[in-house]
Nucleic acid binder design. Structure first.
Length: 499
RNA sequence: GCCCCGGUAGCUCAGUGGUUAGAGCGACGGACUCAUAAUCCGGAGUGCGCGGGUUCGAAUCCCGCCCGGGGCACCA
């Protein structure tokens, strides 16, 4: 089976921040997990580079839009290895291959009769060379960028017949109740559709930084059309010499933040329908990361800096924290205090220390050898369902619940240590076999939770698995007693050191 | 104004008809010593926003209200 997942492509007019890391990390966890399960995975991310804001920013700096895009795209591309993202390709919409593919697809939609010439009327800024939406316009009908007064202008441009897809979209949402998740976002998109769809303009005149309309080279496509199509076009050129489109399209899970719901839940499926292509299988919408209950913003100075966190604690800790702390799909609060608490209590104390104490005991009393003995069913009963539970939760894109399921088991293992008190068993020769069993059970328990955690925290789990002498990180190996009993474990530095 | 989601222990949240409503964090008391002064146990702490209703029985269903957040189109 194949599994294709995407993040939004990030607009190059901004610096990479926590929000970008968040979506990408979630997608990466899915991608890594599905690879563990043996799926043929394709994971796409990239940058959105066309449009007026980039053109304006470049102009302000006295460089070309392409130069600006090159510089800023590099920052996003550099983010990926930093957060341990294993994207299979990084698409840039300024890529000529993408541009060409967009032209072909839009031509197809045009030929099918879904695009017509119309006129757009609105407040126009001649300096921006673009229309302003009511929400963008400043006081007294002024341009928020240039501060000049705006006049109502008409522009001839091309319109996409969105209204023609009203019924098909409603049917899509009815036939596939889980097309958009979580349910409140589905409702929101559906009510938007049911409210009556109007056609939208899909081209802009007077803007050069974009994909030229093939049948009207004076115009470029509205940047959202160009951007949305990336999920499809990338497949045609991501792998040199091979077109992956048929293999991976339609995408299985497209992840987006709630701010771009409408584009992905309404426009994008309609565009695909217009092009005669299958619609993506699902759209999963996450919320905002808030700090002090407010949306993060640099001006408020309340940003949890992902780079600072990673410098001090590593990418794994950031990945864990974001997915653990905030119920995926809902808005949630993040903070440096919250991070430190999770890091110390859950990563260092619960998980890291469980590994340390277990390996130390095996080292001290058994010279690192794990006996090939029967495991304790008391723990086995609790750990055995874990792999299926986690897989089912990640199928539903519920990483927060998956982590909770794993942590319940980590706590179980710590409790088991107290219940059995291996240090007491170690003092009594008659309890030698029991001690073997307890230690072997603990090692197996740790192996199972660590493989389950591998997609979330690839770096630290790899260290631990190495110390455990475990090589197979496939999902099949995440089952209780998937591997034969016995083995040898090595030493381990604290996985999550406390400062 | 209309629509959607939420309002459960000090904090963050789980729980969507049925035993004395749960978890984690925090706080208090205790146990233990293998471990990154980690871990484990215990009691305490709420009767589930408010008011009605349905039901043998509701946090869980229905109605109304209050509070918070979001959406109601061409901002990426």
């Amino acid at each position: 089976m194949t599994f294709y997942t995407t993040t939004p492509i990030y607009y190059v007019n901004a610096q990479p921040h926590l929000g970008h890391a968040y979506t990408t990390i979630a997608a990466d966890v899915l991608a890594r997990h599905m690879r563990q399960r043996g799926e043929d995975v394709f994971f796409l991310t990239g940058t959105d580079e066309h449009g007026e804001p980039v053109a304006l920013a470049a102009e302000a700096e006295g460089i070309s839009p392409k130069e600006l895009a090159d510089r800023n795209a590099a920052r996003f591309e550099a983010l990926m290895p930093r957060i341990e993202a294993t994207n299979d390709f990084f698409i840039r919409t300024s890529d000529p291959r993408h541009v060409e593919a967009v032209r072909e697809l839009m031509q197809r939609i045009y030929d099918a009769g879904h695009i017509y010439k119309g006129s757009y009327e609105g407040l126009y800024c001649p300096r921006c060379a673009d229309f302003k939406t009511p929400s963008e316009v400043g006081e007294g009908d002024t341009c928020p960028v240039h501060g000049i007064e705006l006049a109502v202008e008409k522009e001839e441009n091309w319109f996409f017949r969105l209204s023609a897809f009203q019924e098909d979209l409603e049917k899509l949402f009815e036939d596939q109740p889980e097309f958009v998740r979580p349910v409140e976002r589905r409702n929101e998109a559906l009510s938007f559709i049911k409210g009556g769809l109007r056609d939208i303009s899909c081209s802009r005149a007077g803007l050069a930084w974009g994909v030229p309309v093939p049948w009207d080279e004076e115009q470029v496509f509205y940047v959202w059309f160009d951007a949305l199509l990336n999920y499809f076009t990338a497949l045609s050129f991501a792998k040199p010499g091979e077109d992956l489109t048929d293999k991976y399209w339609p995408a299985d899970v497209q992840l987006v933040g709630k701010d771009i719901l409408k584009f992905h839940a309404v426009y994008w499926p309609a565009i695909l329908m217009a092009a005669g292509l299958p619609v993506q299988k699902s759209l999963v919408v996450h919320g905002y990361l808030l700090m002090d209950g407010e949306k993060m913003s640099k001006s408020l100075g309340n940003v949890l800096d992902p780079f600072e966190v990673m410098d001090r604690f590593g990418a794994d800790a950031l990945r864990f924290y974001l997915l653990r702390e905030v119920q995926f799909g809902a808005d949630g609060t993040v903070s440096t205090e919250g991070f430190e608490t999770r890091y110390e209590t859950e990563l260092a104390n619960d998980f890291g220390n469980l590994a340390s104490r277990t390996l130390a005991m095996v080292g001290r009393w058994r010279d690192g050898k794990v006996a090939a003995t029967t495991l304790d069913p008391a723990v086995g009963n609790d750990l055995a369902p874990l792999a299926d539970e986690v897989a089912a939760l990640l199928d539903k894109v519920e990483p927060t619940q998956a982590l909770e399921a794993i942590w319940t088991r980590i706590r179980r293992l710590n409790r088991y240590v107290e219940e059995t008190a291996p240090w007491t068993l170690a003092k009594d020769e008659a309890e030698a076999e029991r001690l073997d069993q307890v230690l072997a059970t603990l090692v197996e328990g740790i192996r199972v939770v660590t493989i389950a955690l591998h997609a979330f925290m690839p770096v630290s789990t790899a260290k631990l698995l190495d110390a455990l002498g475990v090589e197979d990180t496939s999902w099949a190996a995440a089952s209780w007693q998937a591997e034969g009993p016995g083995g040898e474990v090595g030493a381990l530095e604290p996985l999550f050191p406390k400062s």
